[in-house]
Amino acid sequence: MANRQHQQLPYLGFGLGLRPTHYEYILNHRPDVDWFEIVSDDYTIPGGKPLYYLDRIREHYPMVMHGVSLSIGSVDPLDKDYLSQIKALADRIAPQWISDHLCWTGVEGYNMHDLLPLPYTEEALKHVVARVEQVQDYLGRQILLENVSSYVSYQTSQFTEWEFLSAVAEQADCLILLDINNIYVSAFNHHFDPLTYLHNVPRERVQQFHVAGHTNHGTHIIDTHDEPIIREVYDLYAQAVAHFGKVSTMIERDDNIPAFPELYAELQALKAIAAKVTTQAQVQEDV
């Protein structure tokens, strides 16, 4: 552990993903959103409009960085250039934290630009833990890893997904970004109980929630992030708040992006759920 800061990260409240279609709206209206999450990769470019708006919006809101290309589970060497771009971006916007996904995105130098699931084996666990430690040492801070949606599981897996995620977090001493929608999607696709997942992740390591929409094809669900959040995912979010307490929460909408007020309304719905669950918990505690 070289320079890693190991500080208590703040509770940020309720945020949204920063998307180019909303840049002007945000600057003109300064909506009452607690924070924004950026897709780091959208800003690892030399210049242009995205970086200009990023700097302007950062002046008014806390931000966190969320990457899609770390490929922490790949057997390819870690991409030092990519890591240095992430570090440079972090130096530029001073994010509250940096996250990516517990997955791999390609091997042999190729990038499939997808969040591909890992086999949950001892070998993969050891491999990922070593790489998370390398990344954390390089960035000088703990990172958050997010559970991905998946459509396959492997014959060779020795752990459940939640056991694997928890083991990575404990052994590499990293934090968890729990995507509530991804748990719902994977639970549907692999026939497990999403509550079992929620209840078996180390509470003290969960730093952030993602909530999103998806597309249900009947036989399986695809994590498209292009639809409003469905009732079942709101319900699962309520269960997550009941179990984990106050956790920074954001809506991740990546496609078919609606006008800002529509996402804002969804965020208010999440806020109301969290408030209700927290109040109920308080009442029970008082009784």
């Binding site: 459509y151 396959v152 599981s153 492997y154 060779t156 026939h191 399986h220 695809i222």
Partner: peptide, 17 residues
């Protein structure tokens, strides 16, 4: 290497990717 089940075969699951 992929788990098969009645709801969706391994081939169908891989085809999603």
């Amino acid at each position: 290497e992929i788990v098969n089940d009645a709801a969706l075969s391994a081939q169908q699951r891989l085809a999603v990717y």
